[in-house]
Design a binder for these strands. Sequence first.
RNA 1: GGGGAUAUGGCGGAAUUGGUAGACGCGCCAGACUCAAAAUCUGGUGCCUUCGGGCGUUCCGGUUCGACUCCGGAUAUCCCUACCA
Length: 857
Amino acid sequence: MVEKFNSKVIEKKWQSKWSESNSFVAKKDLSKEKFYILEMFPYPSGKIHMGHVRNYTLGDVIARYKRGRGFNVLHPMGWDAFGMPAENAAMQNNIHPAEWTYSNIETMKSQLKLMGLSIDWSREFATCDKDYYHHQQKLFKKLFKNNLVYKKKSFVNWDPVDNTVLANEQVIDGKGWRSGAEVEQKELSQWFFKIKDYADQLLNDLDHLNHWPDKVKLMQKNWIGKSEGCYLRFDILDKTHKKIDQQLEIFTTRPDTIFGASFCAISPMHPLAQKISETDKIIQKFINEQSSSAVNEESVARTEKEGIRTNLSVKHPFIKDKFLPIYIANFILMDYGTGAIYGVPAHDQRDFEFAKKYDLEIIQVIKNKDGKDNIDLVEAYTEDGEVINSDFLNGLSIEEAKKTIISKLEELKIGSKQVNYRLRDWGISRQRYWGCPIPIIYREDGEVIPVPDDELPVSLPDDIDFDSPGNPLEKHPTWKHTTCPETGMKAVRETDTLDTFVDSSWYFMKYCSENIQNHSFDDEDLNYWMPVDQYVGGVEHAILHLLYSRFFSKALSDSGVGSFNEPFEGLFTQGMVCHETYKTKKGEWILPSDTYEKNNKFFRLETNELLTKGPSESMSKSKKNVVDPEAIINTYGADTARWFMLSDSPPGRDINWSESGIKGAWKFINKIWSLINENKEIFQISINGNEVETENYINLKKMTHKNLKDITKSIESFQMNVAVAKIYEMTNFLTTFKAKNNLERSALKESIKILIRVLEPMTPHLAEECWSIIGHDSILSGQKWPEFDKNYVIDEFASVVIQVNGKKRAVIKIENNAEQEEILEQLKIIKNTQIPDDLSKIRKIIFVKNKILNLVL
RNA sequence: GGGGAUAUGGCGGAAUUGGUAGACGCGCCAGACUCAAAAUCUGGUGCCUUCGGGCGUUCCGGUUCGACUCCGGAUAUCCCUACCA
């Protein structure tokens, strides 16, 4: 009886060996084809969770497989280390953010190392490292110089009690998460990246990303939200319909419906609205109500449409004596289009609701599909149709009408065709301490100057006070005061820090520099490794992180850094790790490790209390349905955990963690382990056999090479669960195979070697140990991925299905490429009531070689 | 409200891309080993059946010699998004 696989000892042994021989340290080598595999780097929150285990196992399989295929692989790891949780910890536990962050990194790094990942740790960094953010400040300056950064006023969530800016996720039901105070909208001057300048490129280049999931591309497309329409300027009239010296510019995608317009509406934030409110108390009150309430997006969408009529109106450009009253309305967004619209109630649902409420005219200008018009509409008609009631546009299609009206507007110089995007410029200012300082100073004469290179980095001060509210950098007694290096004038530093999304928008480039401490890029390194060939991470980053990274690559390459357009050649989004939930009668969530099962019922360990089992959901701390990876690795080992993560579900879908699943994986590891140990003798003798090839021998060869072919294909196409199934098949065959002569014995040796080799990406420790048991060095010292032998993947017999009227009735085993006549001959032998003896009854025969013969009666 | 994805045994899931549905794993059943249990090993396992066969990939319909696969419609679940003019 073979002893169980001792994961503790064996895994540690191989991890040390790999580390000592720098097995995973990547070196630029122009003679080899490179492969850059990257998983999204973790936030150092404290401990690793199962989601990390799945993500990094998947990436590691690819990394190891590609090495086996002879690629020069880069597989690095780092830490997304700036951000709010560190500041929260600082406030709650009185610990410095840096200390909290670096100690978490240490813990998590040691946990990741237990997994046996083939990572080049020499390139590791954290985004809060001074070297990292030094480099980031330089990149910021490059973008600044290239005119891709600007400052503008913008609204933030303001907590009036804590005197602090809140992130959206810190606003709960319109109240500050700490103070509970009603959140206000406050206007601050903030920094922005001009991502909108790249909207078209970001949209069009999606077409070239052939190895990205379609759903992610679609999400990005919708997020960018390109729409074609036109701007249109109206003269504004006062209540006596006299022109005042001002115009209203609106944006519409439906200029074809201009004859159906019955009002204009502007955002409460619109300059015109602001101006009116200066003299009109009622309007001022309305505007104030709107700006204080609008916080939670979901509730915003449900809020009833409300507006207030102003004394102003505009003149319809094509209808004599028609005036459209101007409303200030809560559903008009200032940051889309021009913050002003004209309302066409008959053909826009929001305008329709608004018109019903305020009793405005509803004029139908597109004919319904059923041909009716001017009926009492119960909702807006937004579909296609013929233009009616529209003077010179009558009879045209919507598309034709759009073209006609736009050229008319352009001719009259009151409007122009315009492409508009939903995408807004990226606000990067954060009023927080734990982030990258923005390298800008404000001189006393009002000049805004980037900090010169020789004064970089602008470092975060260590002595920082979190006890009083507000931005800690702002409150620091000395930090912000400085002098202008050129003039010697007094100056103050920018106290905003950069959004952490900036940190993660270029970290993959930083890994490319071999000397990681160096805070400038080696362009050759960068252009050798970039782009990332395969990026793996959660779909929750499908929009922001990936879009920002794409923007950064483009903007930096335009600013002279790197010469690649897209950062991620291939993208894979893996599913989540789920677990059932357990709850006491009182509604308290219970950790799976604190439960036991009896007769299909679950009980709490200490109290024997009966628990209610909830459905399997994504693991989350709040519902306590989490399993600690370190505990699993301690009990079963890293290879078991890795194998389980790969085996049960396709990588793109959610996986359900289960006790029986992990036990099954453990069983498999030991099955391999005893297969090798029980057969190790045959590896110690050299075999010279001149025996003839037996059927047994050929079957073994066929099984091995067919499976090898399938395993390779499955890994290439990210179907790890299928690769696992094929490995099971191979293992089951080999464990029951009885070699009867030397030829068979040598074939068994070969098959076992192939099995171990293909296991290496998935269960590397086990594979390495088995490899050494059969008398070889490390697999990693140049042991290539095996090629399957074509001769053994073709069968000389084919199973041809006999169908009658398309239904399967029999299967004939016949030599490969047998012709129709041969099979018809064989039919006579088959006894099946459905197959006619008399072939003259057959109307038609469909024959596909080696597949089917269908008799149509 | 808008956009998207998914639906196959008791469960997780395969299916050469229109050609033998249910590979492989879990679970379950039976047997072997054992004083016994666990572990391990062997075999069986979609449903119905009068043992001829019949029915089966959420439901309804279509294309086809042939549909899990393509098309149209419905239902359910999940994800993303949030008044985008």
